[in-house]
Amino acid sequence: MRKIKKKYKATSAPIADLITYRALPTREVEYIDPFLFLNHHGPQTYKPKNNGLPFGPHPHRGFETLTFILEGDIMHQDTGGGKSVIEKGGVQWMTAGSGLIHAEISSDKFKKEGGPLEILQLWFNLPAKHKMVKPNYIGLQQDQIPTATEDNGNVKVNVISGKWGDVQGPIDSLGGIDMSSIELQKGGTFTTTVAAERNIFFYVVRGKVNVNNEPVEKLHLVEFEQDGDEIKVEALEDAVLLFGHALPFNEPVVAQGPFVMNSEQEIQEAFRDYQAGKMGSWHE
């Protein structure tokens, strides 16, 4: 079994009227290569006639984002031509690459009617060789995400990228990242193996689980040692996890605002390119 190195509680970091917990980075943990950032928005309920999500047009370069819509919806638009409304149970995977401008706001329907909202956004680094790839966006509704089951259906694995058993995720990760969200009913268990040299991303969104015989509550990120390959999880309550793994890139990470590159010089270049309109121009 892999030993647990440390458990980190996500810190409260509200954005406007949006309840937000940040699991990465915090004062205790900067990143788990190549996993850079996780914001957990909600859970909360919006009243009718609300302003929705506050993420208007902003640029990105040098990494990828994966957004999980557990409740509510997101209307996405970007200067690469991506546009969609993804609803409960769906995901968005955006490769910022060489750079684009995007907005992530609530649909007109959600702003009019309100309702529950819980959304998580995870950032993955891109290896240096892929930092400047052409931007790309993929939006998947719940019924487009393949699932695997464990423990007689008590555990449901939504496979986003990489493989889980015989189930292949629909997204081909440039960084070789395997990523799933996992729903467990109380008492449900699963065991999986991850090669010791791969870093694991393990975040408890809801509920409480035992992982390798240690209890972990919701809003906690687990960092593992790189010493074994077995991960055993048991749900102490109904629970939802984000679970992924990847080989670390072991490259310098220089992050400033919306850009993640390998050097300060590349960051300055990103700001210049954005100001020069090279990431596209925004039209509502």
Results as ranks from 00 to 15, higher is better:
44 Q>V: 11
62 G>D: 06
74 I>Q: 03
88 K>C: 04
100 L>R: 07
243 F>K: 05
250 N>V: 02
156 K>V: 06
196 A>C: 07
232 K>M: 13
30 E>R: 15
163 K>L: 01
154 N>P: 05
74 I>R: 03
49 K>H: 08
171 I>C: 07
106 S>A: 11
127 P>H: 14
235 A>W: 01
167 V>F: 00
52 G>L: 06
64 E>Q: 15
143 D>P: 06
185 Q>D: 12
56 G>C: 09
10 A>K: 05
81 G>D: 14
131 K>F: 03
207 G>A: 07
211 V>N: 08
70 L>M: 15
55 F>D: 13
138 I>E: 08
197 E>T: 10
170 P>Q: 01
49 K>L: 05
105 I>E: 15
46 Y>W: 12
220 H>I: 04
223 E>S: 09
147 T>Y: 01
164 W>V: 00
264 E>Y: 13
256 Q>E: 11
4 I>A: 08
128 A>N: 10
263 S>T: 13
144 Q>G: 10
198 R>Q: 14
139 G>C: 10
283 H>R: 00
147 T>G: 00
155 V>K: 01
94 M>C: 13
39 N>W: 07
211 V>F: 10
61 R>D: 05
124 F>Y: 08
161 S>F: 02
154 N>F: 13
161 S>W: 00
254 V>Q: 14
125 N>G: 15
111 K>I: 01
97 G>E: 13
145 I>H: 01
278 K>V: 10
258 P>V: 12
131 K>D: 09
203 Y>N: 02
54 P>F: 14
256 Q>F: 15
254 V>E: 11
32 I>L: 11
185 Q>M: 15
170 P>K: 00
